[in-house]
């Protein structure tokens, strides 16, 4: 028996302008789902919607790091990756969606996010004074943080 394959997309939802990072707090996973549904209907029509609609789900959404995981069936996942850059709005908030990574398991997604945060920290490292460094390290690498330090989390 052949296993039913999935693909997990790691996406980043970025509102325009750095100062508005915290606006994403009001967004929930069903808002993302609805936005994807509308976009895929307008681009790939009935066929695209029928392929994806039942199985797709938003597995993880972190409003602070602005990273979300989406599960798609293997095969139609190319329909979805072609649609995601076109999404303009999620729940009346104008956003820009970019695909960071495509992987086969959700574990690989978390691995990728960890590496991604590391890379971001390395870029910041030189511009920081030694006293700030430890503080920043804990802020960037822990994925659930206070609102105050959210703007420094990632790009």
């Amino acid at each position: 028996m052949v296993r039913f394959k999935n693909r997990y997309l790691t996406i980043q939802i970025s509102p325009p302008g750095n100062t508005q990072c915290n606006q994403l707090v009001n967004i929930h996973s069903h808002h993302v789902y609805q936005a994807i549904r509308l976009a895929i209907k307008s681009i790939h029509g009935d066929y695209g919607l029928a392929c994806v609609q039942n199985i797709i789900s938003v597995k993880y959404l972190n409003p602070k790091t602005r990273i979300a995981f989406i599960r798609v069936p293997f095969g139609p996942h190319k329909l979805l990756t072609s649609v995601l850059p076109v999404i303009k709005q999620i729940d009346k908030l104008s956003v820009q969606v970019s695909v960071l990574h495509v992987s086969a398991t959700i574990r690989q997604c978390f691995k990728f996010v960890k590496d991604y945060q590391h890379r971001h920290l390395e870029q910041l490292w030189n511009s920081l004074s030694p006293s700030e460094r430890d503080n920043f390290k804990s802020v960037v690498l822990s994925l659930d943080v206070e609102e105050k330090s959210a703007p420094y989390l990632n790009k």
Binding site: D46, Y47, A50, C51, Q53, N54
Partner: peptide, 12 residues
């Protein structure tokens, strides 16, 4: 439209 989506979903 609805029956088309349902039909494709069922066959998939």
């Amino acid at each position: 439209t609805d029956s088309r989506i349902n039909c494709i979903q069922a066959s998939h």
